[in-house]
Design a protein around this nucleic acid. Structure first.
Length: 108
DNA sequence: TTGGTGACTAAAT
DNA sequence: AATTTAGCCACCA
């Protein structure tokens, strides 16, 4: 007997990547928003966990995904955290007290 | 199967 | 504003 059903993890990842690729440069999106746009419901945690498994050389704009309220989940001291802040700044996103103004940079 | 965990979120204190 | 509580989804020992 074959397995009942292969894990749909790849499809979910593809859905996530699809949404991720749609985030325009200079804009940001929250984990929860990305999850919902990808049709994953309230899988905000899963989104974060999935992004953590991305290869280093990925071309996906993972840095445009931040936490609710414009907060940045990654520690400022970590390699990924500083890289994220650097990339956001490079796109013209100004951080105020380590936070992003979602009214201004939020997407959609 | 169960319990612990994480780049989460919203509401309550 | 900061901390706690509870809910959420998927992964792993």
């Amino acid at each position: 007997m074959q397995k009942p059903l292969p894990p749909a993890a790849d499809e979910r990842r593809l859905a996530l990547f699809s949404v991720l690729a749609q985030i325009p440069e200079g804009r940001v999106c929250t984990y929860g928003q990305v999850a919902e746009l990808a049709g994953l419901g309230r899988a905000a945690r899963w989104v974060g966990r999935t992004l953590s498994t991305l290869p280093e050389g990925t071309h996906l704009p993972w840095h445009r995904v931040i936490a609710a309220g414009g907060r940045i989940s990654l520690p400022a001291g970590s390699a990924s955290g500083s890289e994220q802040r650097q990339r956001l700044a490079a796109e013209g996103i100004v951080l105020h007290n380590d936070r992003v103004n979602l009214r201004r940079y939020g997407w959609p």
